[in-house]
Each structure stands twice: as C-alpha cells, then as structure tokens.
C-alpha cells in the first residue's frame, strides 16, 4: 500500500468516527461528514446522470443528426420528444411559464401509473391470492412426525391462512371494528405485530453486519498504521502517529471548548437568576 492510499484510508476512518460522533450529539465533526457526503453524492449523481443517462440514451442516439436540422435527420429522431419534454421542466425557473412543466410531469406520472397498476395487481393481489388458495394441509403436524417448527407443515399453513384473513379484516375501513369483526381485526393486528417483530430482528442483524464491516475497516487501518504487519513499511507508523495525535488534539480542543461553554452558560444563567 502506498502512502496516498494510506492517507485516504485514514480519511475514511476519520469520516467513520466523525459520523459515529453523532451518537453523542450534533457536533462540527458530524457536520463536516454530513456536508461532505451530501455534496459529494450530489456531484457524483450529476456525473452519473450525464454519463449513464443523457450521453448513451440521448446524445449518442442523435449523434448522426445536425443541430441546424434540429437533429431530425438523425437515424433515431424520435428521441427528440423526451428531450423536449425534459427541457420543459426548466420552465419552472419562470414564474410566468412554470405551468408548462406540468405537461412532462403529467406524462411521466401517467405512464408510470399505467405500468404500476397491472404490475401491482399481479404481484400483490393475483399471485398472493393464488399462493393462499393453494396452501396445503398435508402433513398437518409436520414432516417426520410431530414437528411444530416445520414451516411447511399443514399447521403452519393453517396459521398463515388465518393470519392472512384476519390481517385483511383489520384493513377494512368502512366498517367499525366492533363485536366479532373487531375481535378478528384484533387478531389481525396481533399477526401483523408478530410479523413486524420478526422483521425487526432480521433487519437489525443485517445492520449489525454493516457496523462490523465499518469496525473491520478501522481495524485494518490500525493494523497497517501501528505495526505494519500487513505491509511492512516502518514509515507508516510515524505518519500514523502524526495523523492520530493530530486527530486526538482536535477532539480534545473541541471537548475543552464544549466544557468551557457549558460552564460559562451555566454561570450566566445563575447570574441572571
């Protein structure tokens, strides 16, 4: 690893720690990390949009056309239509003509909705309905005898079926949840909550793995910097010490400043009282 890579790695660790400092409270380090990531990502997406969106999907399609023919002489001139619709969005900069920008938006929303309705209907209604209809109650007590934890047993499928029906009843809005209907709806919300609990645990596990990944990065950096066993180069240790103590100094100064501010504001408050 060369020194430049090491410096970038150090910077990555600094930004990681700066982000974690948010756990204490909002502070200049977090603000720095926040503004950095917002700014960099905004700039990054502009470039991505240019190179992966506009260039291959518009400019290259009209590449063989001429501007004085308004690119109508290109081999794929129909790409001018979305280009014009896209440009109409810029009318939002004018108070007088801002209404024109509703045309491309209407087109976009209309097309998207047209695509979304059959897709949603198919995925969330037809396929789910078929899956519920074809639940099997064979092997009711589980495969291989009495196995209550078997997810494919008839009992599991019965629980799924009752859960689906009761959860659907919970989502009835034009009928009050009273009497037997209310009790089934209560069962529905219980089913939902059990599902949410499982989902919560599953996702938290995934988040922990992200955290472990960050810590591993910091650990790798420490290995490179401290004893250079990964890449034997004694210079890293010295550079590391400079960078490390520099960071420690900044943090210590910040904490002292915070403490001084805290006590001065407290004494001011006492004086005013």
């Amino acid at each position: 690893m060369d020194f430049t890579t090491f410096l970038w790695m150090t910077f990555g660790v600094f930004v990681t720690l700066a982000t974690f400092s948010f756990l204490y409270k909002d502070n200049p380090f977090y603000k720095f990390a926040e503004h950095l990531v917002v700014g960099v990502s905004a700039g990054y997406f502009v470039i991505i949009l240019w190179h992966n969106g506009l260039v291959p999907n518009l400019f290259q399609k009209l590449a063989d056309g001429d501007w004085y023919y308004l690119w109508l002489n290109s081999s794929e001139p129909w790409y001018i239509v979305p280009a014009i619709l896209g440009m109409l969005m810029w009318t939002r900069f004018s108070r007088e003509y801002a209404w024109v920008s509703r045309w491309p938006m209407a087109m976009y929303i209309g097309i998207s909705t047209g695509i979304a309705i059959p897709l949603t209907m198919s995925t969330y209604i037809n396929k789910q309905l078929y899956a519920t209809m074809t639940l099997s109650f064979d092997n009711f007590w589980g495969h291989g005898g009495f196995n209550l934890l078997d997810p494919y047993s008839g009992l599991s499928n019965l629980i799924i079926f009752v859960g689906v029906i009761s959860a659907l009843i919970y989502f009835f809005f034009s009928k009050a949840h009273e009497g037997w209907f209310g009790r089934v709806a209560d069962l529905g919300i219980w089913t939902l909550m059990i599902g949410f609990g499982a989902s919560f645990g599953y996702t938290v596990m995934a988040r922990i793995s992200l955290f472990v990944n960050r810590i591993q990065d910091v650990d790798d950096w420490g290995k490179v910097a401290w004893n250079s066993t990964v890449e034997p180069n004694p210079n890293y240790s010295n550079w590391f010490l400079v960078v490390f103590w520099g960071m420690v100094l900044i943090i210590v100064v910040y904490i002292i400043k915070e403490i001084v501010q805290h006590f001065s504001s407290k004494s001011k408050a006492q004086t005013q009282a």
């Binding site: 409270k25 909002d26 990390a33 926040e34 990531v37 917002v38 990502s41 905004a42």
Partner: peptide, 17 residues
C-alpha cells in the same frame, strides 16, 4: 437534497437536530 440514500438521511438528521 440529494439522490444518495444515506447522504439524504445525513442531511435530514442534521435538520432535525
């Protein structure tokens, strides 16, 4: 704000605090 998921979160969190 931005079209990057976690950059967006960072910015909104900042606004909240």
């Amino acid at each position: 704000v931005t079209q990057s998921q976690f950059a967006y979160v960072a910015a909104v969190n900042g606004i909240m605090l």
